[in-house]
Design a protein around this nucleic acid. Structure first.
Lengths: 226, 226
DNA sequence: AATTTCATGTAATTCGTTACATGATTCC
DNA sequence: GGAATCATGTAACGAATTACATGAAATT
């Protein structure tokens, strides 16, 4: 029941959907996968994990690491707590994924949604992208109106701040335009699929995004402490 | 004593430094002058005003509007509460302005600082701009490192999100470079002034910013309700 | 053996929001 | 005289942080 909701809960469920993990590892993934925008602390994470368990969406398991989750809890060895998504948890996450209410278009919420687009159906992706875009366009309208009204009362620095802010928003709109076009271009295979609003591709293959590709070998070192 | 600090307090003091205002008007100015980034609600503003009064930084005055602050409280007419900065308030604000601790380089804090650059001395402006820049450069370093480490584990959408995030940060760095150069270019008149770290220019004239200039007549209508 | 990093947590606090409640003033 | 908007507040809650506390495991 307890509504403890928010971005953190969403992101935790999304990451655990990919593979079970313990808290410490989760936090690191949170701060790289989505972490360009947000950094969570343990003080947020652990209590959140507790409520998710209480809701039946996660179960705690003791045992090996994420790389070797089958390793039995060795005798005498204090095992870390590995969290695994339950069936109900999966269901709940997919319900969250399918929600396209106005909240989903806010800055940080949107970033979190985007980060899990790989597990989101195309129609929902489209709705989120377009919702975000019109949200930003509204914002631009207000900024323009306010600028026209107050321009001469403001000093140069305030004006420059506003100009730069508007430019940033305009750039994001252009980015969204590209993404939306990309999504449209890729709507050939897997055509429509009219019901089943929460189908996803665990297949690893996503659709025609522009750009990317490169290879570097993995490296188990990590950062972003306390 | 009560530390109620933060961006809101800073911005309120800064706006009231320009002219006395009542709460409702303050909120509107907050959401246009700085509001590209942040929107404050009455639920935050009024309690904040109370503590500022309790600290002796503001006094409440009843009377006319901001346009006509001298109008006596007409008999029988419920006057709005106009807040005016006290001498101690001015002092406190200037102390805040002169602080260039690491907090001042965070996203929203920086925006607030920038919005009041018109009342900030050049050396402090420089420190804030350069601090912000190196803060962003650190961030870029981390992003690049993390990308190099995790690139191949991430799906296309996550990658695209990171790429876009980095691009935004890089753009802001370029913006800061321009601003810093502008400031440097304008360091002819008012040379050095080595001590008196909190001098400011109420003179209205700021230094060589790029861009701007235009005229539109003022218009007392406004928006951003509830 | 000492230091660093891994790992888990709690208590108090911060900084704000939403929803509610109330009433005066201005526009039409 | 009814609606919009101006104007001021409060109580309850939200979503996270910071600072603290603790201890095991790996590295040097």
């Amino acid at each position: 029941m307890s509504r403890r909701s928010g971005i953190l809960e969403f992101a935790v469920l999304g990451l655990l959907r990919e593979s079970p993990m313990h808290g410490y590892e989760l936090r690191k993934r949170l701060n790289t996968s989505l972490g360009v925008f947000r950094a969570f602390s343990y003080g947020s994470l652990y209590p959140c994990l507790k409520t998710l368990v209480a809701n039946g969406w996660l179960i705690e398991e003791s045992g090996g690491t994420a790389e070797d989750p089958l390793a039995a809890p060795l005798a005498g060895r204090r095992a870390k707590i590995v969290y695994r998504l339950t069936a109900e948890g999966k269901e709940h996450f997919e319900e969250l994924l399918s929600q396209t209410g106005p909240d989903a278009y806010e800055d940080e919420h949107f970033a979190a949604r985007f980060a899990f687009f790989g597990q989101t159906s195309r129609d929902v992706r489209m709705r989120v992208l377009e919702g975000r875009r019109s949200r930003l366009e509204e914002r631009l309208e207000k900024m323009r109106a306010s600028l026209a009204r107050t321009r001469e009362r403001l000093d140069d620095y305030t004006l420059e701040l506003q100009r730069h802010g508007m430019e940033s928003v305009e750039r994001e709109v252009r980015w969204l335009n590209e993404l939306i076009e990309s999504e449209r271009a890729g709507r050939d295979q897997q055509r429509s699929a009219p019901d089943s609003p929460t189908q996803q591709n665990t297949s690893g293959k996503t659709d025609g995004l522009p750009r990317n590709r490169d290879t570097t070998r993995p490296d188990p070192s990590d950062d972003t402490a306390t």
